[in-house]
Design a protein around this nucleic acid. Sequence first.
DNA 1: ATGTCACCTGGTAGGTGA
Length: 255
Amino acid sequence: MKLATWNVNSLAVRLPQMLDWLAVQQPEVLVLQETKLTDDKFPQAEITAAGWHSVWFGQKTYNGVALLSRDAPTDVVRNIPGFADEQARVIAATVSGLRVIGAYFPNGQAPGSDKFAYKMAWLQALRSWVQDELTRHPRLVLMGDYNIAPEDRDVHDPVAWAGQIHCTDEERAHFRALLSLGLVDAFRLFEQPPRIWSWWDYRNLAFRKNQGLRIDHILVSTPLQPLVAACTVDKLPRKNERPSDHAPVLVELTG
DNA sequence: ATGTCACCTGGTAGGTGA
């Protein structure tokens, strides 16, 4: 079965291409970030008509997440329990025998900023909660827009990006701390071609020049690791006429 | 190349966030 994550940068704008993409890829689960929709505006009817269940958690203008699935989701959780947050960034559910967490990690803006401090606090809260979730759900997938490039090989120009947002030591330490809970980066389980990114800035012809970052990730718990058959970035939707700045990332699980 | 996009407010441009 296929699981996927995609920062759509406004589901209102991207709904037609998301439905096209669902029809082609037929994932068991798709988590979305930056839906930018209040809950009353979520396009449940269209998604249901296409054949997917959906649960969602949004707000006006910013953030917003959703989880689409072929099978009905249960035990839905919105945001990080115990972490008071006005921003809609997390949706989790049990589906097809997996605990799936979809997350839109804070951007952080710039090291030293208030938004960076919020990102650090959010990451700490996420880590504690995921650690807890793993005790209840050994078969767990944590995927979404992490807004962290884990290593220099995930950055088109590591020199220019050194110490910049997405690439700071603090963010990368948090990423490694998530791995240390018993998660593995599905993308790095395989030999990959160089210069694979999941995000390209809209500016500066970045996509045409393939100047991007790998900041969208799928982490699977160690019991799932033997089932991971592939992990890829699908660049095709980034070539659409009105693309999101992110491409979807997919993982294929056997069994 | 300061090269974009989406959304808001408050209007038909400017600010914010990414």
